[in-house]
Design a protein around this nucleic acid. Sequence first.
DNA 1: TGCGGTAAAACTGTCGACAGTCGGCAATCG
DNA 2: CGATTGCCGACTGTCGACAGTTTTACCGCA
Lengths: 232, 232
Amino acid sequence: MALSTAAPRPFIQQQNLVEQVADYLTQAIIQQHFLPGERLSEVQLSRDLGVSRAPVREAARLLESRGLLISKPRRGFFVRALNAVELEDVFDLRLCLERHAIHRLAERYTPEAQRALKQQVEVLCEAAASNDGTRRIEEDLQFHRLMLHYAGNERLLRAFDDLTHELRLCITLITKTHEAPDTIATSHYKLLDALDSGSAAACREAIDYHIGVARKFVVKGVGETVDSSDEG
Amino acid sequence: MALSTAAPRPFIQQQNLVEQVADYLTQAIIQQHFLPGERLSEVQLSRDLGVSRAPVREAARLLESRGLLISKPRRGFFVRALNAVELEDVFDLRLCLERHAIHRLAERYTPEAQRALKQQVEVLCEAAASNDGTRRIEEDLQFHRLMLHYAGNERLLRAFDDLTHELRLCITLITKTHEAPDTIATSHYKLLDALDSGSAAACREAIDYHIGVARKFVVKGVGETVDSSDEG
DNA sequence: TGCGGTAAAACTGTCGACAGTCGGCAATCG
DNA sequence: CGATTGCCGACTGTCGACAGTTTTACCGCA
């Protein structure tokens, strides 16, 4: 309520069916009600959701642009299956974006940003202590989203949001291999300390370490699972 | 039977109307047949193209995800109008991506990549000497796309492609304020030299200068034009 | 002449339907 | 018994139509 500058969380106005269907599909995919590689039938979804095929198709197109679905001509939509290489690429791009963001943020670190980030870390720590793995991930991503937000580049933030959509593809996987609560806390406080110091080198070191740890955890998790989803 | 490994794309599959409509719309927007901020009527487009509204809607959604169109609920689709700030953001993100890309590329600079980039610079120089402004821009972007490609991160390349779609929004503007042919040539050869040197610092300096010059030209061009298209 | 209100026109969101196509299954042939 | 071919079902791509909403045009009134 206190923040008036911008809507940090991506708000969605549930007016049209397309967005409702898109939200439903997103949640279903994230919660693995639809398994990676699974084919989605438009008519089936239409019947289940009680709508016609048009909104379903448009929502599927939307999710395709977000990297959650893949469409094959005349075959329909399939749930995207990220392999280890693609996940490495995702984390590499995330590192690229966040390095840039934290550098920009250090240059324009306002008390407001500092306060918001600090508050979010506290929320994150509380979430990290809970057993809700999904909430831990979401609050973690929300912290990073705030960093990108206060970096002052809307387009950069959009690129990050696009990326997190794909990250959520393996959110159940991440929840299993996520770090310990105290590790999460200290890791994020290091980012705040680096920002407080105003040193570009410290910021870069902090974010590199931070993303590196996350990458290692997730990629390790992917390697452990049977990843026989080969694409053509 | 000899080669069973790769059958990438035997022939065309350009059958679905959505892609055809999307291509048509993209070209029409780039060539400014539809002006920034202009409203696109679905029925009008359907009539003009001789198709129904469904493919038009899906194509419009696609272009919306690429940042060429903006949809307003119950209002329809509008051609995106980039203001100066948004364009600055685009170039800032481009700098972010290309810095990362050239750094990765320097680490894995193969003779094949070197050859391909060199050849593309020659193509670019040829195009720069011509009067076809659009071709100059496209060959320029193609060079950078090659850099991103050989950087070995598919996701990074996709982020760059997303960005170039928006860059093409003001392609006619860029053609007017583009640099002189010899400047383009030397500027790109500097990138090649930096890559040949293998020095990360040299690469960063080269790409920073390169993008910086492009940014200055384009943003200056936007500033000169009367940009009174304010969005709500 | 300017303004407000109302009604018509146009448009988007959504729907059900039809046709062409793809995948799987079974019958047939070697 | 295995491979091939024709057929059938299911599904996607596309279409025209209807309902609700927004825009616009018109008309009466000050």
